[in-house]
Write a protein that binds this DNA or RNA. Structure first.
Length: 421
DNA sequence: TCTGGGGTCCTAGGACCC
DNA sequence: TCTGGGGTCCTAGGACCC
């Protein structure tokens, strides 16, 4: 292979391929922490480092949220039921997760990334894209930046990470996956297709079990097969959106830039009961607790939700969602609970056993918007200083109608309920 | 010992408006 | 009175990711 693999594996950096790779144009890095939750826990349990370690809840319905590589050697994987993981690896140590600890560790490594470049786009708690094009003059070519980054993360936090470098986000992400654990893989732009085409289709971002099976049924096994399938044929199989996108990816085309400042689009909380629940009062109590958690997080983030949604999973794992868009965005637990309980009632459970309940606030708007979201694209509206300025803009001076101002989108049924003509 | 919890994005139909 | 078409919003479901 002509791409450069530099891997660390505990014995210092070694160059696996010495082909003098030019990384200068592989300016997108994808950094992925190795077995993140397990690694953070092991910092406090050094005696367990060489033993199989699983993070998750033992007993009941828990799944593996993270496993170290000693456990993965036994076939243990994320999202696998803990019970099954323990059958594969009975000697594994199971530790319960501590999310606050992982958030702290995440902030520490993200801060290190931002020391390298301000163009950091966190993807999740344990991975991020970095655009290092502007850092090259200061710190050298991307391969050198990535090696220094890996070294610093390890020195400062005791954690290891893997880094992929490529011309696009997608290639960088694939490369980091192939570099794991504790490695670095650079894919120079001119070698993108050579790297990409032999891979199985489910290596592509967005190809999960369902799309994979649909493609396998038609004899598409590798990225090369996908690339050689005409786009219109592909879209006939898997839909216009996915088909076009996958065909582009199969040719290494990915126009997405690294951008900072992603905004949250929804905030939710859900819970799987230890034992399925039929008692409606117990379901309502759970929804109250969830409404409270969601409301607190909305307020902490300075958001309000325009839409409240309820998720119900039954004992047979069928899942329904019900949602309602409010006349006014809210960050109040009482309001959210009102909505979820009435959605629950309308869903007509007929005494079915419920396995999971979830509450989510969607269509988030800034809490300080007077009329959330309605005129967000209107420059004049944005320019208005006060609520009364906005009322004048909306309704004309002297014609302010407080009820209408607060809920201009309410449907007729609700206005009638308020006594409107 | 069947299948967590946090999300994002896409599709598709109907309502509604112009 | 034979019925278009585009745009947006709302809702439900599903695929996918970590």
């Amino acid at each position: 292979m002509m791409v450069a693999v530099v891997s660390k594996g505990g014995q210092g950096e070694r160059q696996v391929s010495a082909s003098g790779v030019d990384s200068s144009r592989a300016t997108v890095l994808h950094v992925d922490m190795d077995a993140f939750f397990a690694s953070v826990e092991l910092l406090e349990h050094p005696e367990l480092v060489h033993r199989p370690v699983i993070i998750g809840h033992e007993g009941g319905r828990g799944v593996v949220t993270s496993a170290n590589y000693a456990a993965r050697r036994f076939g243990v994987r994320s999202a696998m039921p803990v019970a099954r993981a323990l059958r594969l690896c009975p000697q594994a140590v199971v530790l319960r997760p501590h999310h606050a600890k992982y958030r702290d560790a995440s902030q520490e490594v993200m801060a290190i990334f931002r020391d390298v470049t301000p163009l950091v786009e966190p993807l999740s708690i344990d991975e991020a894209f970095l655009d290092v094009a502007g850092a090259v003059r200061l710190f050298g070519p991307p391969a050198q930046i990535a090696a220094a980054l890996r070294e610093r993360v390890h020195r400062q936090t005791g954690l290891t990470c893997s880094v992929g470098a490529g011309a696009t986000k997608f290639i960088a992400k694939l490369a980091s996956t192939r570099a794991k654990p504790d490695g670095l893989l650079v894919v120079p732009p001119e070698q993108t297709l050579e790297f990409l085409h032999p891979l199985p289709i489910d290596a592509l971002w967005g190809v999960g079990p369902s799309t994979r099976d649909a493609l396998l049924r038609r004899g598409i096994r590798t990225v090369r097969d996908l690339a050689e399938t005409p786009p219109h044929v592909l879209t006939g199989w898997i839909g216009a959106g996915a088909g076009g996108k996958l065909h582009d990816l199969a040719w290494g085309r990915d126009p997405r830039r690294v951008h900072t400042g992603r905004t949250e689009k929804s905030i939710g909380h859900e819970n799987t009961f230890g034992v399925d629940v039929r008692d409606v009062d117990a379901l309502r109590r759970e929804l109250l607790d969830q409404a409270d958690r969601v409301a607190v997080r909305l307020r902490q983030g300075g958001h309000r939700a325009r839409t409240v949604s309820l998720k119900v999973r039954f004992a047979d794992f069928t899942t329904i969602t019900r949602s309602h868009t409010l006349p006014e965005a809210t960050d109040l637990a009482r309001r959210i609970h009102e909505e979820t309980t009435s959605l629950l009632e309308a869903a007509d459970l007929r005494g079915r056993a419920v396995r999971l309940l979830g509450t989510r606030g969607e269509q988030l708007v800034d809490a300080d918007d007077e009329v959330p979201g309605l005129w967000s694209d209107d420059e004049q509206w944005r320019g208005a200083e006060t609520a009364s300025d906005r009322a004048v803009l909306r309704f004309g001076r002297g014609a302010v109608q407080p009820a209408a101002l607060l809920s201009p989108r309410r449907d007729r049924r609700e206005r009638l309920a308020d006594g409107a003509p």
